[in-house]
Design a protein around this nucleic acid. Structure first.
Lengths: 259, 259
DNA sequence: ATTTTTCTGATTGACTTTGATTGAATTCGC
DNA sequence: GCGAATTCAATCAAAGTCAATCAGAAAAAT
């Protein structure tokens, strides 16, 4: 039985079902019957269909919204596989944080790992543009400041010209930055210009830049320039990081840590 | 609408259980029965289920929270019970949003309901200081701008002097505000001064202030002044709102909508 | 217009969940 | 350590919910 949809009223009902579901998160069949003016059998069929599409999870008595299409931080956190490398890098970065520091956390999965390790550290101030990092520290943790800005959905970070205004008010001790590409010629690069704009802003404002980048970033060049190597003080990476590149970076005065 | 007090869906109950657990850290079965309106047998079954998921540790008489799975704010947002009143108020507020608007969403549960209804509205720009509202719109939705600031954990909002800098760069058409107290003498009041500071900042910056407040706020006075009644243009509330107060507010030029 | 196909809603028996009961296990007071 | 009180797990009946099937209605195709 192939999926040949004859468009009757069904798609319209699905859309309304989606709407109800988005709003309530969990719905019971009984309520949907009233809401959609359909029989329980039809509602169940619709739910079964949406479940096959991966949009809902059916449970006894109704269904719950699958947040995958919503892209909530929870889902992202689940999806982002925290590799052992990234976690090791993050743990090494912890060593650079001292009591009383005001630190900046950039977007990116490696830095996110670092954020997770900061939940007990109440003697520092964390500044970030990453909604995911903020989520990690939203329940408990150090003082947390978000710089304002427009949400870039794909990275869940706040970017753009607005970020400038809060940043200029703050004095940052250390910034833990991520990057998409790291090369001798192009320096730090990332995919999005407004993301790059904010990164450069931060790096111009902070006393010490600590770059967290796993070995896959070595030699890569992405679209937009996000900073110069001259601004980087420490690079924390893993053992697989290209050795020649590491030596040249060290020669440029960057402290390279491989864990 | 004669909402049947039938037993909720299992996942719903789990979510509330998680919430209680997060708040109290340890819970007794007896208390959960009252809180979840379920029998001891069901509560035990639920606890056994959550234990299998590794979220709680069962002990004699109840259960304790496993810390590692703690502190995800998304759960709180999800768990916040949205009463029918609040949802109705939010739905009424939708009428005030026009294509092209730049609107501000304040913190508070009623406004959060409104945020949930805005996921399809891509023809507006949403500005907010509420991390929960941002979470609702993080996956999909209109352009989203967070004003910067320091996180106030209890309300999950960004507050304080830093909020000023992004706000002054923005031109807002309508602000949907929440409040803790609303009275003729004290105007709008809230519990936290820095929260109040940000609220006043917003209300001074926006063309039209639309207050969403259920009837429990009527006549209440909280700690810090968060705005004058003169700045409020529309009040959307429920049918139970004190009638005398409503009339006096109307006399002051406020459009009072009761849904 | 008729046939074919798809969709809907009702019926039925099977399954799941819930709450009460009862005997076993655990904790607390002495 | 022993007994009383509480709490737990297992079982069962009742209620609710589900999937399968079938007949009729609506739409599409001929």
């Amino acid at each position: 039985m192939a999926n040949t949809f004859k468009c009757g009223l069904a798609p319209e009902r699905w859309e309304r079902l989606r709407q109800v579901l988005r709003q309530h998160r969990v719905v019971r069949v009984e309520d949907l019957c009233r809401e959609l003016r359909a029989s329980p059998a039809t509602v169940r069929r619709d739910l079964a269909h949406l479940e096959k599409l991966g949009e809902v999870k059916r449970v006894h008595g109704g269904a719950v919204c699958i947040d995958s299409s919503l892209g909530e931080p929870v889902f992202e956190a689940k999806a982002s596989i925290s590799t052992e490398e990234k976690r090791r890098i993050a743990r090494a970065a912890l060593e650079y944080i001292e009591p009383g520091d005001t630190i900046y956390l950039d977007g990116g999965s490696t830095v996110l790992e670092l954020a997770r390790l900061l939940r007990d550290r109440t003697n520092i101030i964390v500044v970030t543009n990453s909604l995911r990092a903020a989520s990690e520290l939203a329940g408990q943790g150090p003082r947390l400041i978000l710089i304002g800005g427009e949400l870039r959905r794909i990275s869940q970070t706040l970017v753009g010209p607005l970020t400038r205004w809060v940043l200029q008010e703050l004095h940052l001790d250390k910034a833990f930055m991520g990057t998409m590409g790291l090369s001798l010629e192009a320096g730090l690069t990332t995919t999005d210009p407004s993301e790059a704009f904010t990164k450069e802003l931060v790096m111009g404002q902070v006393r010490r830049v600590i770059l967290l980048a796993d070995s896959t970033k070595a030699g890569r060049v992405s679209f937009a320039r996000a900073g110069r190597l001259e601004n980087v003080h420490v690079l924390i990476t893993d053992k697989q990081f290209d050795k020649a590149l590491a030596r040249q970076l060290a020669k440029k005065g960057i402290e390279v840590v491989r864990v």
